[in-house]
């Protein structure tokens, strides 16, 4: 079966995100004053083959835990979809 995983990797809440802070300033300069917080992370799309959805899930979890996210500083979440034609 074929799957896609839509993965979001975000900096942990308590960690200063200087990029988000700079973008917030940019938004204020643009006149959008009501933005209270900006956090910037990564969106990663994977396509994978796996015999079952549980296998696909296990692969995506391993990819996130070992490489795509560093759990010391980031959190991840993902949505898995079966795209088998």
């Amino acid at each position: 079966m074929k799957f896609t995983a839509e993965i979001d990797v975000m900096p942990q809440k308590e960690i200063l995100d200087p990029q988000g802070k700079a973008v917030k300033l940019g938004l204020h300069n643009l006149g959008i004053d009501n933005v209270a917080d900006v956090r910037i992370g990564k969106h990663i799309t994977l396509q994978l083959d796996a015999p079952t959805e549980a296998d696909a899930r296990a692969q995506v979890e391993m990819a996130c835990n070992k490489l795509l996210a560093n759990l010391i500083m980031e959190t991840y979440s993902y949505q898995l979809a079966n795209i088998t034609a």
Binding site: I15, L16, P18, Q19, A22, N70, I72, M73
Partner: peptide, 10 residues
């Protein structure tokens, strides 16, 4: 232990 994040001054 630990990790290196983006410099706080970007």
């Amino acid at each position: 232990p630990g990790v290196l994040l983006r410099n706080n001054g970007q």
